[in-house]
Design a protein around this nucleic acid. Structure first.
Length: 298
DNA sequence: ACCGCAACCTGTACGC
DNA sequence: TGCGTACAGGTTGCGG
């Protein structure tokens, strides 16, 4: 459940169900799911046993569970990325094993367990150090997992710097959608919400960023913030059972999408059929009238 | 240093 | 029913 609102839905579920609990054991059923944990699956499991999990945090599409050190502070975390099809599910330990169960974490209290289920295995978990945050001049989470220090703040964080984002856009020689999908410029935005933000901002995906105005950048940013907050309010976007919260329930935002997946359906602003373009080996949906092609494409 | 694309996987939907 | 093709919401790593 890849984009920011869906990951935030999961974070909130974990906050309720795993915070303050002590891990009894972890079981890695598919090594690919911990491939970014360099010391390997056995080390991954060994590092979790006996640790207490603190309140989950998120930046963009990354989620992490801080782990307590002997003195009670957090120095490490379990970092999770759901990729295209990852799910973090919480439920009774004796329930059936999911077909694509990759990692199972059991708690010392014997209650609900935490499962990482991932059909396509693009997602991953790892145990990593927490290091001082690089963004936002101290307004960020304070400590962040080392592997994601290069990720930009997401637009729902206080630490997000709109002016810095604008300057970065102007420096780049690329199109606005590519920039929105670049997690080092702005994190949390994926293919769905990029299309939705651009529809709201009335900008074409290929609009070159090096000539964008402050007003255009502000429109895109506001579009992204508004659409992701609206999606979050109804549990995120899900087209099928692959994108669910920790209890396995789907969100309702699909019905509110204005551009994504609406090929040939009337634009909700002007009635013109929405077009689909090929872009980066995937799809881009936009209104041909509200979002006219720029003279120079990127 | 930057940009853009191919690769990594499994499953589903659809046309013939 | 079966087969082939296209497509799916993400990131990394490599070539240019």
């Amino acid at each position: 459940m890849p984009e920011l609102p869906e990951v935030e839905v999961v974070r909130r579920g974990l906050d309720r169900w795993t915070t303050g609990r002590t891990i009894a054991s972890a079981e890695v059923l598919h090594p690919r799911s911990v491939r970014r944990h360099a010391p390997g699956p056995a080390d991954f499991a060994g590092r979790l046993a006996g640790r207490t999990v603190l309140a989950p945090r998120r930046r963009g599409k990354y989620l992490w569970l801080p782990l307590t050190a002997p003195d009670g502070t957090a120095d490490e975390a379990v970092l999770a990325h759901l990729g295209m099809s990852g799910q973090l599910l919480v439920g009774e330990p004796d329930r059936e094993r999911e077909k694509h169960l990759r990692v199972r974490i059991a708690f010392a209290d014997g209650g609900r367990d935490l499962r990482f289920v991932d059909q396509r295995t693009f997602g991953h978990l790892m145990v990593t150090d927490l290091v001082p945050d690089a963004v936002g001049g101290g307004k960020g989470p304070g400590l962040v997992p080392e592997p994601i220090v290069h990720i930009a703040a997401d637009p729902l964080e206080d630490a997000f710097d709109a002016e810095a984002f604008f300057r970065a856009l102007r420096r780049r020689k690329t199109g606005i959608k590519r920039a929105l999908l670049d997690q080092s410029l702005i994190s949390g935005v994926g293919n769905i919400y990029a299309d939705e933000a651009l529809w709201r901002a009335r900008l074409h995906w290929a609009r070159p960023t090096d000539t964008m105005t402050r007003a255009e950048a502000a429109r895109v940013l506001e579009g992204a913030q508004d659409v992701m907050e609206a999606a979050l309010a109804v549990g995120g976007t899900s087209f099928d059972s692959l994108y669910v919260d920790v209890n396995g329930d789907s969100g309702y935002f699909e019905r509110s999408l204005d551009a994504y997946g609406r090929r040939d359906q009337p634009c909700r602003r002007c009635g013109t059929p929405i077009r689909r373009d090929e872009f980066m080996n995937r799809s881009s949906f936009s209104c041909p009238v509200c979002q006219p092609r720029p003279r120079r494409m990127r």
